[in-house]
C-alpha cells in the first residue's frame, strides 16, 4: 500500500528524488541546447514551468472527461496551446530572449517532461496535487538548468549572469559553449549526483545494519542475564 504524500512532499520530490533531468533524464534537448548562459537556462526553465503548471492543472481538471483512447491527442493540444501562448508572449515582450532561445520555446511542445508528467501524474491525481507536482518538477528543472548554465557560462565566457567572475588572464574554454561542452557538463553532473546518492544510501544501509547488530547484541546480553 502506497503512502499518501503531502503536498509539500509532492513538491520536494521533483527537486531531488525524481529530478526531471538528473533522475528521469527527460527534457534533455533544451537542457543541452540552451544552457550556454545562466540567464538562458533560467528563461527556458521558467517558460517550461509555466507550460508544465498550466497544462498539468488543466489536464488534471478534465481528466475524468477525456476518453482514454484520445487522451494523448488531448494532452498535446492542451500543451501546444500553452506553449504557443508562452512563445507569443516572449516574442512580444522579450524579443531578445526569444531570439536567444530560438526554436527551443516552440519545441517545449514535444518536451517529454511535460507529456510525461501529464500522463504519469496529472491524469491520475487531483488538480491541487498536479499543480504542486508540476511546480516541483519545474523547480528541479530550473535548478539543473541554472547550474548547467552557470558552469558553462563561467568557463566558456568567464561570467555568471553577466557578472565577471574569473580574471581576464583565464582564457575562456570555447568547448563549454559548444554542444560538446553541454554533454560533458551534464554527464559529469549526473555522475557526481549519482555517486553522492549512492554514498548516502550506503551509509543508511550501514547504519541500519549497525543498529540491528547493536539491538541484537543488547537482546542477547539481556537473555544472558
Amino acid at each position: 500500500m502506497k503512502k499518501e504524500k503531502t503536498l509539500l512532499q509532492e513538491f520536494v520530490k521533483g527537486i531531488d528524488e525524481i529530478n526531471p533531468v538528473m533522475k528521469q533524464a527527460l527534457g534533455l534537448c533544451p537542457t543541452l541546447a540552451v544552457t550556454v548562459s545562466a540567464i538562458n537556462g533560467i528563461a527556458m526553465a521558467l517558460a517550461t514551468t509555466f507550460v508544465l503548471m498550466f497544462s498539468s492543472l488543466m489536464i488534471s481538471i478534465i481528466r475524468k472527461l477525456i476518453p482514454s483512447q484520445v487522451r494523448i491527442a488531448s494532452y498535446i493540444v492542451i500543451i501546444a496551446t500553452f506553449v504557443t501562448i508562452a512563445d507569443l508572449v516572449m516574442k512580444a515582450k522579450f524579443p531578445a530572449m526569444s531570439k536567444a532561445l530560438g526554436p527551443f520555446v516552440p519545441l517545449i511542445v514535444v518536451n517529454c517532461l511535460i507529456l510525461g508528467r501529464a500522463e504519469a501524474f496529472a491524469s491520475k491525481n487531483n488538480p491541487l496535487k498536479a499543480l504542486f507536482d508540476a511546480l516541483g518538477n519545474g523547480a528541479g528543472f530550473l535548478i539543473v538548468l541554472f547550474i548547467m548554465g552557470s558552469i558553462r557560462e563561467l568557463f566558456g565566457s568567464r561570467t555568471i549572469l553577466g557578472f565577471h567572475i574569473l580574471p581576464h588572464s583565464f582564457e575562456p574554454m570555447l568547448i563549454m559553449i559548444l554542444p560538446a561542452g553541454a554533454f560533458i557538463t551534464l554527464g559529469l553532473l549526473m555522475g557526481f549526483k549519482n555517486a553522492y546518492t549512492e554514498r548516502v544510501k550506503r551509509k543508511e544501509r550501514e547504519d541500519i545494519v549497525k543498529n540491528y547488530r547493536a539491538v541484537s547484541k543488547l537482546e542477547s546480553t539481556n537473555q544472558g542475564l
Partner: peptide, 10 residues
C-alpha cells in the same frame, strides 16, 4: 580533441 574544441585559435 578537448583542447581543439576549447582553444581552437591557439
Amino acid at each position: 580533441a578537448f583542447l581543439q574544441a576549447a582553444y581552437p585559435v591557439s
